[in-house]
């Protein structure tokens, strides 16, 4: 974690938080609706500090809304969302970094300036922010692409920069919304391995939304299967080998395949 980011976490995290470094997410009896449309109902979910929780569910079931609720971008209608003990939206915003579905790299900024956005927003000078973000570029296989315009990068590269932008924000909790949905199958598998390595090197509490059961089971410690709208958790599954270095071996292991089949079954049941 960059030094400035660490300072920020130390500042932002409540001193009352005890136990492991990092911050946990806790959701109890959560309800949310857009007017008449009930999107989430009586949803419970826990993510331990430095744990990765995967959320899978039928499309349009309110997964993205759930991430926005966790990040403090929206307020629940019922129940509680706490991030590191903070229930107010402001407190959640300071503890969560949200990575939207599309990379949303700003085309008028270079890759490194995109990644350094959070540092600049906090008042860091351009040079200092670039130096800080530059270290992560080297660590995460993006060295040499600092000055590239987003349009010059491949889909996988753009996604990496977008993830670094989330990481550089230095927040203890990452809310990732379908981070690799736009990529082709091969690139997606590569990116999953890359993200697994990134999280091994720099552990954070992660809530990962995806429609890809295999992706969720490979990257997460635990996967919650959501029902169709209004969303609630229909089944929680323990992942057999979270973020194993050899992805191909991990996902073809009979144990993994069995859990995947169970998740698929729960998904179909919840959708029906």
């Amino acid at each position: 974690m960059p030094a400035e980011a660490r300072e920020f976490v130390a500042e932002g995290a409540s001193p009352a938080t005890e136990g492991p470094p990092g911050v946990a997410v806790s959701i109890r009896g959560l309800g949310h609706s857009y007017g008449e449309l009930r999107t989430i109902e009586r949803l419970d979910l826990e993510a331990p500090a430095h744990g990765v929780v995967g959320l899978v569910g039928p499309s349009g079931c309110g997964k993205s809304t759930l991430l926005e609720l966790i990040s403090g971008l929206q307020e629940p209608v019922a129940g509680e969302v706490e991030v590191g003990g903070a229930g107010d939206p402001r407190g959640r915003l300071t503890r969560c970094a949200y990575m939207p579905q599309r990379d949303l790299l700003l085309p008028w900024l270079s890759a490194i300036d995109n990644a350094a956005l959070a540092l600049r927003n906090r008042g860091a000078r351009r040079r200092a922010a670039r130096r800080e973000a530059g270290r992560l570029f080297e660590r995460f296989g993006l060295a040499g692409f600092e000055g590239a315009a987003p349009a010059e990068l491949s889909g996988g590269m753009r996604q990496r920069v977008a993830f670094l932008r989330t990481l550089v924000a230095g927040k203890p909790v990452l809310a990732l919304d379908e981070p690799f949905a736009s990529l082709d199958a091969i690139t997606r598998a590569e990116m999953q391995e890359w993200l697994a390595a990134a999280l091994r090197a720099d552990p954070r509490t992660v809530v990962l939304v995806t429609h890809d059961v295999e992706e969720a089971l490979y990257l997460s410690d635990r996967v919650a299967v959501l029902s169709a709208r209004p969303a609630r958790v229909v089944e929680e599954l323990q992942a057999p080998s979270p973020r194993a270095p050899d992805r191909d071996a991990a996902v073809t292991d009979p144990g993994f395949v069995a859990v995947r089949e169970r998740a698929m079954l729960a998904l179909r049941g919840g959708a029906g």
């Binding site: 971008l73 915003l93 949200y98 939207p100 932008r165 927040k171």
Partner: peptide
Amino acid sequence: DATKMMRTLDAS
């Protein structure tokens, strides 16, 4: 979504 992203990146 870009506006939301900026909010979580501590933008004023």
